[in-house]
Computed example of a mutant assay.
Amino acid sequence: MTAATVGTIGMAPVEPDADAGLLHAWVTHPRSVFWGMQDHTVAQVREAYRVIAADPYHHAYLGRVDGEPAFLAERYDPSRRELVGLPELRTGDVGMHLLVAPTDRPVHGFTATVMRAVLQECFRPPGVRRVVVEPDVRNSRIAALNAAAGFEVLRHVRLADKVAALSVVTRDAFTASTIGGAR
């Protein structure tokens, strides 16, 4: 799995009121079942992202490719959100969620390219040592993408809404990976 050149990628904070309709279409799509918002209304999606926007430890970004909305990325402090109390967490960890917009016209290498851009952004602050993810263990597609980006599964953990594959990637592992090493 290699990252391809797909266009100019940018990210800006989600604007819950303006973006709720678009995000609702993405998070309730059948391909987004692992996002955990299948039954949410537009109002519930708006409120969920208002909560994130007000949270100093959790941030959501609308990603665009060549100016067109294409993905949703979240960055969070795993010691304060999602994974509080897990012994595997370390200083310098940052959590990440990624949802690429569902499409009927897939572009080869698109998701890998988006993953690369999001991980590069996660690693931009010099104090970040690892990126932590906690995908549902049933999500084989994200497991393959995470492996290609250099993530190592530490163990399975029971979270409120799923059994997750607690996984981490260091800067060096990402840079050496198929996705991170692509230029």
Score class of each variant (00 low, 15 high):
159 L>C: 07
166 L>A: 02
108 H>F: 12
43 A>T: 14
124 R>E: 15
48 A>Q: 08
1 M>W: 08
177 S>Y: 03
102 P>R: 00
108 H>T: 15
4 A>H: 13
182 A>D: 08
8 T>H: 11
166 L>G: 02
129 R>T: 13
99 L>A: 04
155 R>W: 08
77 D>H: 07
68 E>C: 05
11 M>Y: 15
45 V>H: 07
164 A>N: 05
83 L>W: 12
107 V>M: 12
4 A>V: 13
150 G>A: 00
141 R>F: 02
64 R>Q: 10
58 H>G: 06
64 R>K: 09
126 P>T: 13
83 L>D: 05
111 T>N: 13
72 L>S: 02
87 P>M: 10
158 R>E: 03
136 D>R: 06
69 P>G: 01
117 A>V: 10
5 T>G: 00
14 V>Q: 05
23 L>Y: 02
150 G>S: 05
109 G>L: 06
72 L>C: 01
122 C>D: 07
62 L>I: 06
8 T>E: 15
135 P>T: 01
146 N>H: 03
109 G>T: 11
94 V>K: 10
4 A>C: 11
107 V>T: 10
142 I>C: 02
9 I>S: 01
164 A>Q: 00
132 V>Q: 04
103 T>N: 10
97 H>W: 05
98 L>T: 01
21 G>M: 09
164 A>T: 02
57 Y>S: 15
110 F>E: 04
115 M>A: 10
77 D>V: 14
73 A>K: 03
101 A>W: 05
69 P>R: 04
68 E>G: 07
128 V>C: 00
128 V>I: 14
151 F>I: 01
52 I>H: 10
179 I>F: 10
161 D>V: 10
14 V>N: 03
63 G>T: 02
17 D>V: 15
18 A>Q: 11
20 A>N: 05
115 M>V: 15
53 A>V: 12
147 A>M: 09
107 V>I: 14
33 V>W: 06
114 V>S: 11
24 H>A: 10
